[in-house]
Design a protein around this nucleic acid. Structure first.
Lengths: 352, 352
DNA sequence: CGATCTCTTGAGGGGCCTCAAGAGTTGTGG
DNA sequence: CCACAACTCTTGAGGCCCCTCAAGAGATCG
């Protein structure tokens, strides 16, 4: 019942690390350092899935893909490409040629594993001959039993625990999961080519995230990182899509959620474009307090200065200076990383 | 068959202007300069709809609403409140007390008329005893005949022509229509309390707009203004909601559209937060060129400097200086308002 | 043809970014 | 458990980008 995975990758370090992750996840792993050896090993012991770098000496990823298609014994084995970030534009070529998915390096454990899982699951469905059409989908759905609800799906989905600073998903990779934050804190952020980072959203208990990429059916344009140790429920993308298709109520909720997101972002845009740093910092503090310490009169929040700076859209030093100002105006008090808001009213009124 | 509208408003200018608009739209209009006179006139000649200012001498809007409810002869007449922007927080009170809608002053012609139309239409449905539940909705739908499609709705909806600088809808008002731009150009923008304006989106032929407020079921948080004489199809909100409810394909499209909007906005956020003015201006120029002159090698675009500045999120003077720089670098040429992009490649590469 | 609006250029200054360096805190491995 | 490394936080100095105010030129409109 253990699935066999063939990993073809020329870089020793990446190959060994990746193999280790896979073995820890109870897969049987074969490795090969180039395409030629990979194909030989595949013929020797037919794998259930192949993970393959694109840029390799001797025989590259495209070559492997081509040979797989040609060889009857190997045709039908799903293949996932590994690509470096810089080669991302090449991936279309791979997808067009018939690769089933791709992962960009560097990738997080969960990205690797969820890509594999979702591919193996699809393969299994294919083998049991469900039609891949929307009709087949609903057929599948009824095969599952009664009508799905969001709750039932959440209860039946896997739960993963993440530590501080761990990445949940990375910009540029393709989504395979919908994430639901059961406890802890997560942020999503985008970065520009100067390496500057802007925090897009802050997530707390009960929030979903990673859905825009799924809904748009495109690669992530943002990364998600854990800021406080978190328990995350991972819902397979297909389950989510089925739910969306079968349950009009859920569609409606999603539409409202998205519309709300758009409105909030527009306000943030206006603020970042024209408001002074003081206003933006005040806004960041109040937003965080309302999000994570709702109802408190003098809430305390604890975030790294860098995180705060990225939320306000400024440099770390500038943020610190503004905090010092606030402190000397008795708007806040600082104890280490923790900031207590002493005058919510005044801070709130500063924003507009 | 002409509907009778009673307009209660103490400000002479507003009352007369509004009455004029209503008469031009073939309504029979009675006017009153305060609540007391209004109620008397209402008793004399029962109107189909009452539009009523809130802040008034003698008897204010809340008083009118209260008396309407008490008087058997007048109960059931729909009432729309007029409120000044500053009083907006008060509107909840009015809605809770039983007002059917509200319009904030200043309002555009189309906002006034669409609020009235949609209210009268709802009243008519109420009179013909359709249940106001979702089930009643679908009942209504089948009463209309076959399944609706977006196309059929667009073809059967009213078409309005707008001139340059006309507002389509204004921030703070409640939505009654979905808009479809058949020709011309429209922008949507938000402004902060310093009066600074940021352009959110630019719309061209074939674009929908004004949907986020409808979908979120909230007041507009942005305004829409025509920049090039436009022909706009107005779809009543209810038709749109019905379509959404009855047609899963449309829901899916909308979800994808919204997700795409979110992604684009996130990129814009990053750009405005950290990119230099040069980059932002280059980005604005390229975006406009791609939107309105797709495929051109050396596209010419024509927008006021102020509009351009609001797109880039900067002051008009700063924008002009940057344009001068670009001109001296032979990236663009300027002829009056019109800007021709001479080196799309270099401009595009500047952005990232 | 004057009034009004838009575009452009100049001068000045302030907000915020960057670089730098020291203090404080956290993590780690012998 | 301590010493050292690595990271985070804080403050200073310098300067640039871009905003603001101002004023004139050009365009548009009734």
């Amino acid at each position: 019942m253990k699935e066999r995975i063939l990993l073809i990758e020329d870089n020793n370090e990446i190959r060994e690390n990746t193999a280790e992750i896979l073995e820890l996840s109870a897969y049987i792993v074969d490795t090969a350092e180039n395409g030629k050896i990979g194909i030989e090993k595949a013929l020797l012991q037919k794998p259930d899935l192949i993970i393959c770098d694109i840029m390799m000496p001797v025989l590259d990823g495209y070559g492997v893909l081509h040979l797989l298609g040609k060889n009857e014994k190997l045709a039908g084995i799903p293949l996932i490409f590994l690509t470096a970030k810089s080669e991302r534009s090449d991936f279309r070529k791979g997808m067009e040629m018939g690769a089933d998915d791709y992962i960009t390096k560097p990738f997080t454990d969960i990205e690797l594993l969820s890509a594999i899982e979702s591919r193996l699951k699809k393969q299994k469905i294919k083998d049991t001959n469900f039609a891949p059409t929307p009709e087949g989908m609903t057929e599948m759905l009824s095969a599952f039993g009664e009508k799905k609800t969001l709750e039932s799906i959440l209860n039946n989905s896997e739960e993963v625990s993440f530590q501080k600073k761990q990445l949940v998903y990375r910009e540029g990779n393709r989504p395979h999961m919908l994430y639901f934050l059961k406890s802890g804190k997560v942020k999503t952020f985008i970065s520009n080519d100067d390496g500057k980072v802007l925090t897009n959203s802050l997530l707390g208990e009960g929030d979903f995230f990673g859905y825009t990429a799924l809904l748009e059916d495109a690669a992530y344009h943002e990364s998600a990182e854990v800021i406080d140790d978190a328990l995350i429920v991972t819902v397979p993308a297909d389950e989510f899509r089925l739910l969306l298709q079968s349950n009009a109520e859920v569609s409606k909720k999603i539409i409202q959620l998205l519309s709300k997101n758009i409105r909030e972002q527009e306000e943030k845009l206006l603020s970042i474009a024209y408001n002074s740093l003081r206003k933006r910092v005040a806004s960041a503090l109040v937003t965080l307090a309302n999000k994570y310490e709702p109802g408190e009169e003098n809430p305390s929040i604890s975030f790294s200065r860098e995180d705060l700076a990225n939320i306000a859209g400024t440099a770390t030093e500038s943020l610190i200076r503004t905090l010092s100002d606030f402190k000397s105006e008795s708007l806040i008090s600082i104890a280490g990383t923790s900031i207590q808001l002493l005058n919510m009213k005044k801070l709130t009124s500063m924003i507009n």
